[in-house]
Design a protein around this nucleic acid. Structure first.
Lengths: 150, 150
DNA sequence: ACGCCTTTGCAATAAAATTGCACAGATCTG
DNA sequence: CAGATCTGTGCAATTTTATTGCAAAGGCGT
């Protein structure tokens, strides 16, 4: 993991569609040597995978919202159960267990408010162990690195 | 945007490193026809870009934290100025302006607590228009789609 | 049914990735 | 310090993949 590896990783996180020849030239290596480095980064697991990032404005889930959730019961198994339910939802793009007054934070990608309504109904009805939740609609995205599922 | 396009998009969001021939076979098209669809999805902007996703546990920023920020002054230009400062920070991986009591939510990726300390010093010192902020350290990540910068 | 437009598959071509091999630099060892 | 060893490199040959022209098939409105 030297200077060239870092250059490769930063470069490929920006654009992994470039040809090996092109990338090799930018980092100052021969194509074969460059390719072997990329293969090594794959095998070692530093590069987890190569994915397509979709344009959110052209996708179908344009509304983003953050929800902080406070659970009634805080045991490990209760936390696990709630996260499992949340993660299974298509509209949930990120889900975290956190410290502080809040127990769980969810990032949502929504088609419309009907979907939001239905999601709340499923996640926050009485039997689901949720004490309170606070919704923050996202007005502006200043920075992000997120995939969108259709 | 038919059934095959959706199949292609979902497939490429999972793994965009597969060869065109391989993908063509899975969606049930000839390689040339499949390629032309992918090119069209690129040109139309639905596919924004192809990127490498790094393994967070093998990367250098392993600690994640969420911060909710309440600003003192809520005007457009104040919001813009704070977001600009926040976005410029390497440790800030996501930044959102939101509705509710909170004005801004930041996702952080940290090497260690020294970095967190230094970041707070820069973002939340008196002159930066921050009234209050709440930190939630992320204990567990149940779902996410995020890139890591070294 | 008829043109018009888009999409498809095939085959030829161009471009890219992959591999074997010999060499250079770094590190270890006696 | 010389020699052995390991890792990374560039070149060239080979294999694989992407790309393009073209004719045919399917959909759509008149």
């Amino acid at each position: 993991m030297d200077r060239i590896d870092r250059k490769l990783l930063n470069l490929m996180q920006r654009d992994a569609s470039r040809t090996n020849v092109d990338i090799a030239e930018e980092v100052g290596l021969s194509p074969s040597s460059c390719l072997r480095r990329v293969q090594r980064l794959h095998k070692s697991g530093i590069i987890d995978r190569i994915v397509a990032i979709l344009n959110p404005t052209k996708a179908e889930r344009r509304i983003k919202a953050l929800i902080t959730v406070e659970l009634k019961l805080h045991g490990e198994q209760h936390m696990r159960r709630f996260l499992k339910i949340a993660v299974a939802e298509e509209a949930v793009s990120q889900a975290y267990a956190v410290t502080g007054e809040t127990d769980v934070v969810l990032m949502l990608r929504l088609r419309d408010m009907e979907e939001f309504d239905a999601l709340c109904e499923r996640l926050f009805r009485d039997q689901t162990n949720v004490a309170r939740f606070f919704t923050m609609m996202i007005i502006r995205t200043a920075k992000e690195e997120t995939a969108i599922w259709l």
